[in-house]
């Protein structure tokens, strides 16, 4: 399924292909069209071609075939890169031996921010990202979370129209991740910035993105709204039961539940605890109230707790990412 973004595009990549010198074809005929203001998750397993595509978008690599434009300019040119802000989770754009303030001002100078605006923008961003206290510190003295905040400021100081985020939350603790996502979300709402995110943390995707592009073996596998990634799996439910005695004591009851719903309800094959039991069913085929009342009637007082959940986004994407 594909979405049709509207021209003029923030990012326009058509027929991208990249073959490395060792013969590996990392990207094959990839099209990627992103409208201004969109937030797109760019996902795929390791080796799918995500990083290669990102590198072609920002001019690090030259495509062997196809074309890529950023705000109408050929990727990799000065005019194209002026519109880009980039955060690499695993690589720093800051200068380790300088103070944060010096690194940021140098970044501003690099991106042609007018000298009279450089300090004001830096201070404003520092307040927004709660990094005011970090400005005088040396970059090498920062913790990982602090450094990522400063990396983000560095990528936003020239108010780019597009931000490329490559694993921005890698190695961060839960609080730091939450903080980073919130700030990015606020920034995006304030400036209507286009976001392209690659991340192995699905929570990043769920918080920041509305659209998802899945890549596999260099080709696009899915391109559409995040809400529709689950597809048919969106109606699947799993009901987990916590029992007073070991599962093995209830084999007859387990089979009766399955028989009652004529095969529309099945036992899950997930690994569970000794006192746990899980069934899987589809809301379109079986009513929730029937499920709960049947379980209650068969397990009676042995039932200590019930937990109901849908299929997680992570699971869906993981299933799509089966490496060929």
């Amino acid at each position: 399924m594909t979405t049709v973004p509207l021209a003029p595009f923030a990012i326009e990549a058509r027929g991208l292909e990249k073959r490395f010198q060792n013969g590996v074809v990392a990207v094959k005929g990839l099209d990627l069209l992103i409208s201004p203001g969109e937030s797109v998750a760019f996902l795929g397993p390791n080796g799918a071609g995500k990083s290669t595509t990102i590198k072609m978008l920002c001019g690090i690599l030259r495509p062997d075939k196809g074309s890529v434009k950023v705000k109408g300019h050929a990727a990799g040119t000065s005019l194209a890169n002026r519109n880009l802000g980039i955060v690499f989770g695993a690589r720093s754009q800051l200068f380790f031996h300088m103070s944060v303030e010096q690194s940021l001002l140098l970044q501003a100078e690099t991106y042609f921010v007018p000298p009279k605006d450089q300090v004001a923008r830096m201070n404003k961003l520092a307040v927004q990202f709660e990094a005011k206290d970090l400005l005088k510190m040396r970059v090498r003295e920062l913790s990982l979370g602090q450094r990522m905040r400063c990396e983000l400021i560095a990528s936003l100081i020239h108010q780019p129209e597009i931000i490329l985020l490559d694993e921005p939350t890698i190695g961060l603790d839960l609080q730091a991740k939450h903080h980073l996502r919130e700030r990015l979300r606020e920034w995006q709402k304030q400036f209507g910035t286009t976001i392209l995110l690659t991340s192995h943390d699905i929570s990043d995707v769920e918080v920041l993105c509305d659209r998802c592009v899945l890549v596999q073996a260099g080709e696009k596998a899915y391109d559409g709204p995040l809400s529709q990634v689950k597809g048919d799996l969106k109606d699947v439910r799993r009901v987990k039961l916590l029992l007073s005695r070991a599962r093995s004591n209830f084999e007859a009851e387990q089979a009766r539940v399955v028989t009652h719903f004529a095969g529309k309800m099945k036992l899950s094959d997930q690994v569970l605890g000794e006192f746990e039991l899980q069934y899987e069913f589809n809301l379109k085929e079986v009513a929730l109230s029937d499920v709960l009342s049947t379980i209650a009637s068969y397990f009676g007082e042995s039932l200590e707790d019930v937990h109901l959940a849908g299929v997680s986004l992570e699971e869906v994407i993981r299933a799509q990412m089966v490496v060929k």
Binding site: K55, C58, G59, I60, G76, S78, L79, N81, R82, L84, I86, F88, R91, S92, Q93, T110, Y111, F112
Partner: peptide, 13 residues
């Protein structure tokens, strides 16, 4: 080492 990446993504020569 791939350190050229951050140089190439900037808007300068």
């Amino acid at each position: 080492d791939g350190g050229l990446d951050s140089v190439l993504v900037s808007s300068r020569n």
